[in-house]
């Protein structure tokens, strides 16, 4: 099992690998820039620990851990 993005802690960086998700969600994530090899950094967790804020391609995005779980890292 590859490591997935929800396992990152604040301040960690990683490179995106494959995305294992249904077609629609996968397209949505890839449209936002999560393509193979892109650098992501976890900026922050929301107060209750769920949505997480990540920085990629020079902008900030928030997504839930459930979505982060489908993004594998390498």
């Amino acid at each position: 099992m590859a490591k997935t993005m929800d396992e990152l802690t604040v301040g960690q960086r990683a490179e995106v690998g494959a995305i294992k998700a249904p077609k629609q969600l996968k397209r949505r994530l890839m449209d936002m820039g999560f393509t193979k090899g892109v650098d992501v950094e976890v900026v922050k967790m929301a107060p209750m620990g769920d949505p997480m804020e990540v920085a990629l391609r020079g902008y900030n995005l928030c997504l839930r851990k459930a979505e982060a779980r489908v993004i594998e890292l390498r």
């Binding site: 936002m32 900030n60 995005l61 928030c62 997504l63």
Partner: peptide, 8 residues
Amino acid sequence: KNAFILEL
């Protein structure tokens, strides 16, 4: 399940 993807 639904996605929550939002640019800040």
